[in-house]
Amino acid sequence: MKTDSRFKTLIKSTNDVNFTLFGEIVTVPKGTTLAAAILSNFGEASRITETGALRTAFCMMGVCFDCLVEVDGNPNIQSCMVLVHDQMVVKRQIGLRSIGISKDD
């Protein structure tokens, strides 16, 4: 069963941004942090740790790292520290990130 968000967005805005959150198109007021957008749209974990623990945004101020997600292909982004922008594609952070391919410039 899917858990609904326990948060309500109070601000009514006419200036909205649309982005893709965990595969679904979501609309939030411009200026919303990604963590707030996640909490107000999903009641489930936005991150699964290496050991399998479920996590989502907690401190909302850049300290706990529980809010990590993948943003536009970049892993381990603290969602409480970035604002949502149009066309953003956000995926869950599952386990540890990888190093990637070594390329010289």
């Binding site: 290496e50 381990n76 386990g95 540890l96 990130r97 990888s98 190093i99």
Partner: peptide, 8 residues
């Protein structure tokens, strides 16, 4: 650095 899933 942050923890990485693969091995250096």
């Amino acid at each position: 650095t942050e923890k990485l899933g693969d091995q250096l």
